[in-house]
Design a protein around this nucleic acid. Structure first.
Length: 114
DNA sequence: CCCTTGACTATCT
DNA sequence: GAGATAGCCAAGG
């Protein structure tokens, strides 16, 4: 494993573990904050290489949907982990704690999204 | 080296 | 707003 890759992994791990419970970050955002813009696709690899457990479930796509196929085991796993932290799922999108749910709740009641 | 892949993103129809 | 398209960049065959 090269030196540069180790530095990259370390930066990613640090950023991911800095995500607070109930909050989420997109892959691109994690990469940018870690100091590696346009490395969104590398974030997943770095997390996979992590020796110790990381709050990987707090990392979602830029549109706030999960990166896995809907209905897959990994998808359900990530979803339950997030819900356990108080994160809502509305219309397949995550709703972090602290965000204004009234609009989404309104959509739910009126049946606009799924 | 060339080509394909992927836990991505932004933009255009 | 969903689907297609084109960038993106490191890894691996």
């Amino acid at each position: 494993m090269s030196e540069t890759q180790f530095k990259f992994d370390k930066a990613i791990w640090k950023t991911v573990s800095s995500i607070k419970s109930g909050r989420v970050m997109s892959y691109g955002q994690v990469a940018r904050v870690a100091g590696y813009p346009r490395h969104a696709r590398m974030v997943s690899k770095a997390m996979s290489r992590s020796a110790e457990p990381l709050p990987w479930h707090r990392v979602v796509k830029s549109d706030r949907t999960l990166a896995f196929e809907v209905g897959s085991g990994a998808y359900n796993k990530q979803k339950s982990l997030l819900e356990k932290e108080g994160v809502h799922f509305i219309g397949g999108k995550v709703v972090p704690l602290g965000s204004d749910e009234s609009k989404d709740l309104d959509e739910l009641l009126w049946g606009s999204p799924e």
